[in-house]
């Protein structure tokens, strides 16, 4: 029996969390923020949810002037379910004027036989700041991957800033493991930093080793794109970039 669940978060400028609604497997906890003036929410335990046919969603609103960090206690594991339909996981993030969101979940692991569609839609006010990390791991250790389609759409002031869809695994269109896309790498990820000050002075494009790159986008934002043999190697690249671009 597939399930539907939508969890909701809202953060206020005074450090409060006026909305914090867990739902089904999506359990939200207020946790202690490392930085003063920030709120922090951790998605705990049941992130290993999306089974075939499940429809999960998290809606997050960072209100004007608020600062919120969202992370997770463990990796999200996409698993095959009895329902052959793909599972869906929707993340809808809104960040208001002069507000900041650090969205730093653990990896998404696409287990053999699973089929998951992730959709992350971000709406940013012109003065909003965002740090967003996404990591996809193709299969648990040593197993072939499931099918994963992940779309990331970021709009700023109503205009598109970044729009990308990654599709891997047996149900994806062909060539995903060829020399243009992954070439045998089993972990891939991105770190997006939206910073209004980049409008004046964007970071310069540069390779981060052989399998990652830092690129300034067409708007005030920088994206790190990386592929790696495994989740650990990927995290090392993205952690180094995070520490450089947007330390907490």
């Amino acid at each position: 029996m597939s399930l539907r669940a939508t969890a909701r978060i809202a953060a206020g400028a005074d450090g409060s969390l006026p909305v914090l609604e867990s739902d089904g497997p999506l359990a939200l906890r207020r946790t202690r923020a490392a930085a003063p003036g920030w709120s922090r929410v951790t998605v705990v335990g049941a992130m290993s949810a999306p089974l075939g046919g499940d429809r999960l969603a998290i809606e997050t609103e960072v209100r004007d002037g608020a600062r919120l960090r969202v992370d997770s206690a463990a990796a999200t594991l996409a698993l095959p379910g009895r329902d052959p339909a793909p599972a869906a996981y929707d993340l809808r993030l809104r960040v208001g004027a002069a507000a900041s969101l650090r969205w730093l979940p653990e990896q998404l692991v696409s287990a053999h036989g699973s089929h998951l569609r992730v959709r992350t839609a971000v709406e940013l006010a012109p003065t909003a700041r965002l740090v967003l990390r996404e990591e996809q791991v193709l299969g648990r250790h040593g197993e072939p991957p499931g099918t994963l389609v992940s779309r990331l759409t970021v709009r700023r002031a109503g205009r598109p800033l970044l729009d990308q869809e990654l599709a891997y695994g047996p149900g994806a269109p062909g060539g995903w493991d060829g020399g243009a896309v992954l070439a045998g790498h089993r972990a891939t990820g991105q770190l997006l930093v939206v910073e209004p000050a980049y409008g004046e002075e964007p970071p310069a494009a540069r390779p981060l080793g052989e399998h990652a790159v830092l690129t300034p986008l067409a708007g005030p934002a920088a994206l790190v794109t990386a592929v790696a043999p495994d989740a650990l190697a990927l995290r090392r690249i993205l952690d180094a970039a995070l520490a450089e671009l947007a330390p907490e």
């Binding site: 779309r151 990654l166 896309v181 399998h211 790159v213 990386a226």
Partner: peptide, 18 residues
Amino acid sequence: LPAASAPLLDITAEQHAA
């Protein structure tokens, strides 16, 4: 509109440009 992307094409494009 589709937004399909390829990480290695993006990564190597900047290397190649240099």
